[in-house]
Design a binder for these strands. Structure first.
Length: 494
DNA sequence: AAAAAAT
């Protein structure tokens, strides 16, 4: 397989004269659509992807989030299909020729909107198909014939079974957020869909992150792919400032409302690892007068779309989300993301914080972490190949200032995977024997600068979480809302 | 260990 990537060479800055969309030989109808939107210059990923896709090559594309991947594959696909576009009204003349799969419904919707916009001056038809919505309208559109289908896997297979869609003419398959599409939860459906496609077709895979494992699996679906890598893979945008605050599990909810209030945040996504946790946090915030709403997979599709729309409109200021919102969603000018829980997968961290700092804008990614998260933190820092500054959150557990090895041995044996062992025993050192992990120096965020007041609450982490397995969702169960008013009162306003 | 995706 041919590689464009070369870690040493900055692929973007190299191209001195600025390329324009008009240079790709795209049809006037496509250029007109771009002009409508005010786009003249392609982003680096677009500059690299468009010619390769136009050649008909398979692509494995890794690019930072918010860099315009969607247009990077949509524009050349439209161009390729346009060569044989039909003006006929007959559905038979409009077989599905391009299929774009995404891991969430909202992302499918968003990609479909983009495709519609880019193809609006062409005779090409497109539609989006996902679950949680009435089958009937989707069926009607599919029966009328569309060249481009954007879909989530389950509902697409449903349509296949109902014989409302025929995939035997698909020439181009796109997997957006490909690494997620290839994970265990999606793979069976994906395989089923692929079995319905012609053997000879063009395959495009895009994601911000590709683990080594997934890269191999991905390659098995591709033929002589061209790798397109803008900036180093698995990287986070450097325009996003990452911050870590240590808190106790009990303090998390109050820490979130504290941060929102003190920073005066009017647009922020707060990520929770669980659906129930997201719902509870949203309720908690609403009780505190915050305009918050939750989005997760246990909500109806109507509720999900309403929450996202209200958030985009600014009616909702805090969107509390599970990882349903971690990938791909493009929310204009989102200045801040908060990780209420640290994600279990380091990749998800990259995707989550990629919701902010899009299209070159600045963004803040604030993560709360507890004693139990140390392993996750190490994984994340390894993945993003940088250390995140650990800061102190005024008035909250300043045990933050101490790394685990400085702590007194635990009295209780609830951390069975760590009990009796020390850091050197925990994986990372044995994987990289040459360079041992150096925890970053803590700094105190001048914003939240406040003297540490030792309190009995600081050690409460290990006391309260008795039989609850210390999982984030359980831990926040009926715990009485701790009044933080006293601490907040004495805090300097910014 | 959890979330997503068909009903």
């Amino acid at each position: 397989m041919t590689d464009i990537k070369s870690p040493a060479i900055p692929t973007t800055e190299q191209t001195a004269p600025q390329v324009k969309f008009a240079d790709f030989g795209l049809a006037p109808e496509i250029l007109r659509a771009l002009t409508d939107q005010g786009y003249v210059h392609p982003t680096p990923i677009q500059e690299q992807a468009i010619p390769v896709v136009l050649q008909g090559r398979d692509v494995m594309g890794a690019a930072q989030t918010g860099t315009g991947k969607t247009a990077g594959f949509s524009l050349p696909i439209i161009q390729l299909l346009l060569a044989h576009a039909s003006n006929s009204a007959s559905p038979a003349r409009h077989p599905v020729r391009a299929l774009i799969l995404t891991p969430t419904r909202e992302l499918a919707d968003q990609v479909a909107e983009n495709v519609k916009a880019y193809s609006r001056h062409t005779p090409l038809r497109s539609t989006v198909v996902f679950g949680g919505m009435d089958m009937a309208p989707q069926t009607a559109i599919l029966r009328n014939g569309v060249e481009i289908v954007i879909a989530t896997p389950g509902r697409l297979l449903d349509h296949v079974q109902q014989k409302t869609v025929n995939l035997s003419q698909v020439q181009i398959l796109v997997m957006d957020e490909a690494d997620r599409m290839l994970d265990m939860g999606f793979l069976p459906d994906l395989q089923r869909i692929i079995n319905l496609l012609p053997k000879k077709r063009q395959n495009l895979m895009f994601s911000a992150t590709f683990s080594q494992e997934i890269k191999k699996l991905a390659a098995s679906f591709l033929t002589n792919p061209q790798t397109i890598e803008v900036a180093r893979s698995n990287a986070t945008a450097d325009n996003v400032t990452q911050i870590l605050y240590k808190v106790s599990t009990e303090e998390k909810r109050d820490a979130v409302s504290f941060i929102i209030r003190e920073r005066g945040l009017k647009q922020v996504i707060v990520f929770s690892n669980t659906k129930i946790g997201a719902s509870r946090l949203a309720v908690h915030l609403v009780k505190q007068g915050v305009k918050a709403s939750a989005i997760h997979g246990d909500k109806s599709q109507q509720e999900r779309m309403a929450a996202l729309e209200a958030f985009k409109q600014g009616e909702v200021e805090v969107l509390v989300a599970t990882d349903v919102a971690a990938r791909g969603l493009d929310i204009a000018e989102l200045p801040c993301v908060i990780n209420f829980d640290l994600p279990y997968n380091a990749e998800d961290y990259v995707h989550r914080i990629g919701r902010t700092g899009r299209a070159g804008a600045k963004g803040d990614a604030i993560s709360l972490h507890t004693d139990q998260d140390e392993r996750l933190l190490i994984d994340i820092e390894k993945m993003i190949k940088q250390k995140i500054v650990r800061l102190n959150l005024a008035g909250f557990v300043a045990a933050s200032v101490h790394q685990p090895e400085h702590r007194a041995p635990r009295e209780r044996g609830e951390q069975s995977d760590r009990g009796g062992r020390d850091r050197s025993d925990r994986g990372e050192r044995s994987e990289r024997p040459a360079r041992s992990y150096q925890p970053p120096k803590e700094k105190v965020d001048p914003w939240f600068l406040k003297p540490y007041e030792p309190s009995s609450g600081a050690s409460s982490t290990s006391n309260n979480t008795t039989a609850s397995m210390a999982s984030p969702s359980n831990a926040s169960t009926p715990a009485k809302p701790q009044k933080r008013a006293a601490l907040l009162g004495g805090f300097p306003k910014a």
